[in-house]
Structure formats: structure tokens, C-alpha cells
């Protein structure tokens, strides 16, 4: 097997825990995160969710359109202990806003929409430079959020602290 797929197979669950953690943080703390360097970003779950199956035999559940996080189906899935496998997120930093569907096991981004091109862009080259900066910023925000999650998740007392709070939220 290639190394390319090994990390997804052995640690894909961490991506799912990360996505579920972001939902938890969004609902309980408003979804604002302070990243290194004092950067503040906001996230919100948008209109698309897929819950991971607990076992290989189970069916994946997808909810789309409207506000799927508020549905009874979503709450039931959380109460059953399901993690998020995919979700469409709104991510904002300052004036800039991205939407992206995160595939949790691989941390790849689908259906991304970048912020509008800056008004100063006068040429295609300017637009390319502006968009390249926005693509990189999105990637770095996701990586920074994941890093925040790991710092909490990998501590030795996680199960009795952060996980306990999240479990209570999931059981609501």
C-alpha cells in the first residue's frame, strides 16, 4: 500500500473527530477561534453533513439543504455516537469568506468557493495572485484549526475533560 492512503486508513478517524469537534465548538462557543499569531477566524456548519458509519455494514447518512445541524436526524446521529465524515463549512477571516466541504478522513477540500476577487485586481495576473493567496490562506486556516484540535485531543486527560464535555453535548 502506498503511504498516500495509509494515513487516511489509520488516522482518518481523527479527521472525523476534528470535524465533529468543530461542530461542537461552533454550537457551544460560537465558532470563533484564535490561531497562532493572533489571527481570528470564524467557522459555521453550512447546509451539508454526512455522518460516518459506525461499522462497515452501516449506512452513511447525508443531510443536505436548509440547516441540517438543527434537524432531529442530526441530533439522533450524535446521540448514537456518530462522527461527521463530511461537512460544508463557512470559514471567515476579516472580510474574507470561504465555503468548503471538508472530507474528514483525508482532510481534502471539495466544492470550495474563494472570497470575491479583490477590487484592486486589474489584470488576470492580479487575479491569479489574489486567488493564490486565498487558496493558501484557506489551506493554512484548516491546518491551524486541526492543530488546535490536536493540541486538545492528544493531551493525556482528554477523555475526562474535552471529550467529556463533547459527549454531554452529543447526548443532548
Amino acid at each position: 500500500m502506498s503511504q498516500a492512503s495509509q494515513g487516511v486508513e489509520t488516522h482518518g478517524f481523527l479527521g472525523e473527530e476534528f470535524l465533529t469537534w468543530m461542530w461542537f465548538k461552533w454550537e457551544t462557543e460560537g465558532g470563533e477561534f484564535t490561531l497562532s499569531g493572533g489571527r481570528i477566524v470564524g467557522i459555521a456548519i453550512d447546509d451539508f453533513l454526512t455522518f460516518a458509519a459506525l461499522t462497515e455494514d452501516e449506512t452513511e447518512q447525508t443531510l443536505r439543504r436548509g440547516s441540517p445541524t438543527r434537524t432531529e436526524e442530526a441530533r439522533t446521529a450524535l446521540r448514537q455516537g456518530h462522527r461527521l465524515r463530511k461537512a460544508r463549512l463557512l470559514i471567515a477571516e476579516g472580510e474574507r469568506q470561504w465555503t468548503a466541504t471538508i472530507d474528514a478522513p483525508s482532510l481534502t477540500l471539495g466544492g470550495v468557493k474563494l472570497p470575491e476577487d479583490a477590487e484592486e485586481c486589474e489584470s488576470e495576473m492580479d487575479r491569479t495572485a489574489d486567488r493564490a493567496a486565498n487558496w493558501l490562506a484557506l489551506h493554512e486556516i484548516v491546518q491551524a484549526l486541526y492543530r488546535l484540535f490536536l493540541k486538545e485531543r492528544l493531551t493525556s486527560d482528554y477523555q475526562s475533560t474535552g471529550a467529556e464535555q463533547q459527549a454531554n453535548w452529543m447526548a443532548r
Binding site: S106, L107, T108, L109, G110, G111, V112, K113, L114, D117, E124, M125, R127, T128, R131, A132, N134, W135, H139
Partner: peptide, 12 residues
């Protein structure tokens, strides 16, 4: 030459 894309999927 058109500018680089502003939407779609990306794999880092």
C-alpha cells in the same frame, strides 16, 4: 491567459 480557478476541489 485566464486567471487561476476560484472554486472547486483541492488536495494538499
Amino acid at each position: 491567459m485566464a486567471a487561476i480557478r476560484k472554486s472547486g476541489g483541492v488536495v494538499p
